[in-house]
């Protein structure tokens, strides 16, 4: 299986966008998509803002293989478990700052702005003893993504799924936008004039 130019371009575009937004440090974050029954994933410590063709690695969808252990992203087991247990076709992971900050003081992110409420309502937060790359992360993130488009690993960052990389990027940046608004409102220190989230039955979501 080869990686065609259009596919590489998608990784390149999404990586650059994340880098430009400052969501990751220079060598952090990871991207993947399902293709032909395999996973195409970024190489460990790849610079997402400056991806080269050899930064994309093909790994097995079902089990660990040499590539996934030796050169693929540290989070490749998390990506694989998400693909095995959800409808994700592409995954974007980044350490989006507002979302990551909120994850340290909240148990879930309940959107309060119109766009966030319309698109996501709530984003779950999971907590892990080893919040990076562990099997525990893989086991907790995948179930949360079954019925939600994104999940936050406390003190670590966001995993967003989509039908394409661009779609998953849209989810991740949308969640960060919603979190940023909550963050700013908290900074203002004033109660909400109208809390829509309490009117829309989000508690059952």
């Amino acid at each position: 299986m080869k990686i065609d130019k259009e596919t590489f371009n998608s990784f390149d575009l999404v990586g650059k966008d994340l880098s430009n937004r400052g969501y990751n440090s220079s060598h952090a974050g990871n991207l993947s998509m399902k293709s032909g029954g395999k996973i195409i994933i970024t190489r460990r410590s790849a610079m997402l803002g400056w991806l080269q063709p050899e930064d994309l690695v093909i790994i097995d969808l079902e089990e660990e293989d040499a590539h996934s252990g030796l050169i693929a992203s540290t989070e490749s087991n998390v990506h694989r478990n998400i693909y095995k247990h959800t409808d994700a076709m592409a995954i974007v992971h980044a350490h989006a700052p507002a979302t990551t900050a909120l994850s340290m003081i909240e148990d879930e992110i309940t959107c309060i702005d119109g766009e966030g409420m319309f698109l996501y309502k709530k984003i779950p937060i999971v907590e892990c003893d080893i919040p990076v790359g562990s099997y525990e992360v893989a086991e907790k993130v995948a179930p949360a993504l079954q019925n939600y488009p994104a999940v936050v690993v406390r003190a670590h960052g966001v995993f967003a799924k989509g039908v394409t990389l661009e779609d998953a990027l849209g989810v991740l940046t949308g969640v960060e936008q919603a979190a940023d608004i909550i963050y700013r409102v908290k900074l203002l220190g004033q109660p909400l004039k109208r809390d829509y989230s309490k009117e829309k039955g989000f508690t059952n979501w």
Binding site: I3, D4, E6, T7, M33, K34, S35, G36, G37, D87, M89, A90, G162, V163, T164, E166, D167
Partner: peptide, 18 residues
């Protein structure tokens, strides 16, 4: 509900199965 490029081949079989 999501956008995918119409002429791209990569990933299309996987998406179609979904």
């Amino acid at each position: 509900p999501k956008k995918i490029p119409r002429f791209t081949l990569g990933g299309k079989p996987d998406l179609l199965v979904l």
